[in-house]
Design a protein around this nucleic acid. Structure first.
Lengths: 365, 365
DNA sequence: GTGAAAGCGCTAACAG
DNA sequence: CTGTTAGCGCTTTCAC
C-alpha cells in the first residue's frame, strides 16, 4: 500500500524517461533489452503497478468488456440460509448454473480470447449512482440482459459506447442503435410442439406459460400456438396456466391446477415454458400416480443440466446460453474495431435445438 | 461513437461549473435541486456518461474488486465442439458449475452488497502485459485462486493493493503480506475417513489422490493418513493411485488399476480426492459388477451438485465455495477500510462438512 | 451552494 | 531507440 510509485519514480530510478517506462509496459519490443531490464528491475524494487485508470484515460480505452444482469439471486440472506440449514431441495435452484452464469462463462472466455477482461455487475436501479453507470464508465462496451437496465439509461449510454442487448425481443420503443441477440424461442417451442403432435400423435395438450412480463415466455407461447394452428388444432388465446414464478414449485402447482380442472380429461402432454417448472411437474405427476411419458408427456425449455439427470430425462429445447455470451463479445469487439462503429444495428437470432429424451416418449438419447 | 461529451460540455450547456457537474454525480444532495435538474437534463441531452477512468484517477479508487482464476476451461475450441457434436458425457464437466463459477457468484454477491462491481479474468502467464497486471491496475483489491499468478508478480502487486489468496495452503515462500483463505482439507478428509473406519467398520481402504502439484489434494491425503494413524492402521507414504487429471475418466481408470492390482483383495472402501473422480468410479465399479456401497464404499471431496444426483448418491466432504468468495470480499473490503490497511495478514480456514449419502453405506439424507 | 485551479498517472505524437 | 510536451476527464481543496 504506502506511497504508490508512478512512472516518474520508475523513470528516475532507472535513469530513463517516463516515455520509456511507458513503452516497456505497452510494447516491450520497442525498447532495447538492456534498457527494458533496467526499467523492470526498478519497477520491481519499487513495487510499481501501472494504473489502469491513468492508462485508460490517456488512451481512451479500458480493455474491459462488461455485463449487466438482473439481480436474481438476491432475496437471499435469510431464505438461503434457511434452505441450507434444512438441506431442502430449495437450493437446487442455486446449485446449478443459472442463465447468467452460463453467459458469464461464455463472455469471459470469448473476452479473454480477444484480450479483454470482463466486468460483471448485477444491476440495481437506474439513475446516476447506479451500478450500470459505473460499469458503463469503466468498459469499452457491454452486454445487458433484457429488462435489466431502464431503457432510458441505455438510451443515453448507448450513444457513447457499444451496447448489446441479450435475450428478450428487440424493443421497438428502445434505443435503436443497440445490437441485439436473442434465441429462437418461438421456433423452438413450435418445433417441440410439432414433435408431440405429429411424432407422438398427441392431441390433448396443455401449455404452462411464464410470468406476465417475460417476452421470452410470450414468444414460446406464440410458438406453441403456431404449432397448433399448423396441425389444425384449436388455437388458444393464452397459456392454460400462467404461474407467478418459473420455479419447480410453481411447476408442481401448475400440474395440480391442471389435473383438478381436467377431471377425467387429463392432458396427454404438458408443455412448460421452462425446464424448472417441467421438472417440478415431474415430481407432482408422480405423486398423482401418473406415469411420464406413458400417461402424459412433459417438455421443458432451456436445456438446463438438471434436465438430463432427472428421471425420466427431460425432453426440452436447448438454448445456447454460452454462445449468447460469446456472440455478444464478438459483436462488441467488432463494433470496437475500426470497421464496426459505423454499421447498422445488428440483430442476431441464435438457433435452438430440440433435445428428445424420455419425458416425451422418445427413448433415451 | 461520436464526440464523447465531458463535464465541460455538460457544465457549459447547463450554465454551471464543472465542479458542480461533478458534485451532481458524486453527491447529489450537495447541490440545490434546481441546479441538479438542470445538470441532469443537459447530461441526458448530450449523452453524457462519467468516465470511470478519469474518476478513478482523480479519486484513486475504482469501486471494483477483482478475481483471477486459473485458465481451466481452455483446451476447448476443438475438444468442446467435438463433445457437443457427439452429445457425450464429456460436457458434463462443463454443464455443472466449476469451482471458479461458485466463487465468482459468491464474490459478485458480496461485492454488490458493498457497492463494488467485480472484474474477472482467467489469468494467463505473468510478466508485464499479463491480464493479472491489467486486473491489478483496475481494481481496489482482488482475490487470486491458488497457483494462478506467479508468486513473483504477486509480491510486487500486493505491495500496492490488498490481495487475498484463495484455497491452496499458505505459501511460506510467497509474499507474506497476503491475506489467505482456505478450506479445511485435511480435517475433512480425516473425518470422512474416520467415518468409514469407525462407523462402517471398513479396514481395507484405498485413496486416490490428485495431480502432483495440487496442495489441496496433498492436504486431503494427509488427512486420510492421519485418520489411519488414529485408527491404528498402517500409514501409507502416498496415495494408492495418483491420476494425471482429476476428471471422471481418470476416476474410472483409477478404479480399473486398483481392481486389477488387487486380485481378490478388493478394497472395502475407495476414497477419492475429489467428486469428479468418485463419480467416474461409480460407473466403472458398476461395469465391473461391484455394488456400491454393499461391495465397496466410495467417497468424494468437494460437494459438487452432481454428487447428489448420481446413484448411489455420493458421500463427500462439502467445501463452502460460495463462502470462499464472500469471505474474500469481506477481507478485501476490510483492508480497504481505514482500519484494515494496517493489520497483520489474516489467514482464515473455512470449515467443511461431511455429507453422508448413500455411497458410503449410510441411508439417504 | 458554487467556482477556480491544480493535479491524479499515463499515453501519444513529435522530435531527436 | 529514447526524450519532450501536452493533455485525457474527473475530483479536490480552497475561496467566494
Amino acid at each position: 500500500m504506502s506511497s504508490t510509485p508512478t512512472v516518474y519514480d520508475v523513470a528516475e530510478r532507472s535513469g530513463v524517461s517516463i516515455a520509456t517506462v511507458s513503452r516497456v509496459y505497452r510494447n516491450p519490443d520497442s525498447v532495447r533489452e538492456k534498457t527494458r531490464d533496467k526499467v523492470l528491475a526498478a519497477a520491481r524494487e519499487l513495487g510499481y503497478v501501472p494504473s489502469g485508470n491513468a492508462r485508460g484515460l490517456a488512451s481512451r480505452s479500458t480493455g474491459v468488456l462488461g455485463l449487466c444482469f438482473p439481480d436474481y439471486s438476491d432475496p437471499d440472506t435469510e431464505s438461503e440460509a434457511a434452505a441450507a440449514a434444512a438441506g431442502t431441495e430449495a437450493d437446487d435452484d442455486h446449485a446449478f448454473m443459472l442463465y447468467s452464469d452460463q453467459i458469464i462463462r461464455g463472455m469471459e472466455r470469448a473476452a479473454r480470447r480477444h484480450g479483454y477482461a470482463l466486468l460483471i455487475a448485477a444491476s440495481l436501479s437506474g439513475g446516476p449512482e447506479s451500478l450500470v453507470a459505473k460499469v458503463a464508465g469503466r468498459v469499452d462496451g457491454f452486454a445487458v440482459l433484457a429488462r435489466t437496465v431502464p431503457t432510458e439509461d441505455l438510451e443515453v449510454i448507448s450513444r457513447r459506447l457499444p451496447v448489446v442487448m441479450l435475450a428478450g425481443p428487440r424493443d421497438p420503443e428502445g434505443p435503436d442503435h443497440l445490437d441485439h441477440i436473442e434465441v429462437a424461442n418461438a421456433d423452438g417451442q413450435r418445433e417441440i410442439t410439432r414433435h408431440l403432435i405429429e411424432d407422438h400423435g398427441l392431441r390433448r395438450l396443455a401449455f404452462v406459460g411464464g410470468v406476465e412480463d417475460s417476452p421470452d415466455a410470450q414468444a414460446r407461447f406464440d410458438g406453441y400456438a403456431a404449432a397448433r394452428r399448423d396441425a389444425g388444432l384449436p388455437v388458444p388465446e393464452s397459456p392454460d396456466v400462467r404461474p407467478e414464478l418459473m420455479t419447480q414449485a410453481e411447476g408442481a402447482k401448475a400440474v395440480e391446477a391442471l389435473l383438478d380442472r381436467a377431471g377425467t380429461q387429463v392432458p396427454q402432454g404438458i408443455l412448460f415454458a421452462n425446464d424448472q417448472m417441467a421438472i417440478g411437474a415431474l415430481h407432482a405427476l408422480e405423486r398423482r400416480g401418473l406415469r411420464v411419458p406413458q400417461d402424459v408427456a412433459v417438455t421443458g425449455f432451456d436445456g438446463i443440466p438438471l434436465g438430463r439427470l432427472v428421471r425420466p430425462a427431460l425432453t426440452t429445447v436447448r438454448q445456447p446460453m454460452r454462445r449468447l455470451g460469446e456472440e455478444a463479445v464478438d459483436l462488441l469487439v467488432h463494433r470496437l474495431g475500426s470497421a464496426g462503429s459505423a454499421g447498422e444495428p445488428e440483430s442476431r437470432v441464435l438457433p435452438v435445438d430440440v433435445v428428445r429424451r424420455e419425458s416425451c416418449g422418445c427413448g433415451a438419447g
